[in-house]
Amino acid sequence: MIKDTLQSIQGVDIFPIISLFLFLIFFIVMVVWISRLDKKYLKEMAQLPLEPEENEFSNLAGEKNEK
């Protein structure tokens, strides 16, 4: 039965191959892309959540923030 279902789709064996290639291309482009990113910019981005806020309170008893 499963065989019948498979055969009823024309050229079904190409599907996994297409998906693999899609992913590989996607992945390679990604890696090339991010490897060319600017270091300074990456550093800036990573600092975004850490920018000082108006109300800096330490969150734990007995431990004060270093700021």
């Binding site: 991010i34 490897s35 990456l42 981005m45 990573a46 850490l50 923030n65 270093e66």
Partner: peptide, 17 residues
């Protein structure tokens, strides 16, 4: 996690990937 540890994420590059 960066907030609680008070330090930036290890690799921003890796986070994009």
């Amino acid at each position: 996690l960066p907030k609680a540890a008070n330090r930036p994420i290890y690799s921003y590059r890796l986070s994009i990937l």
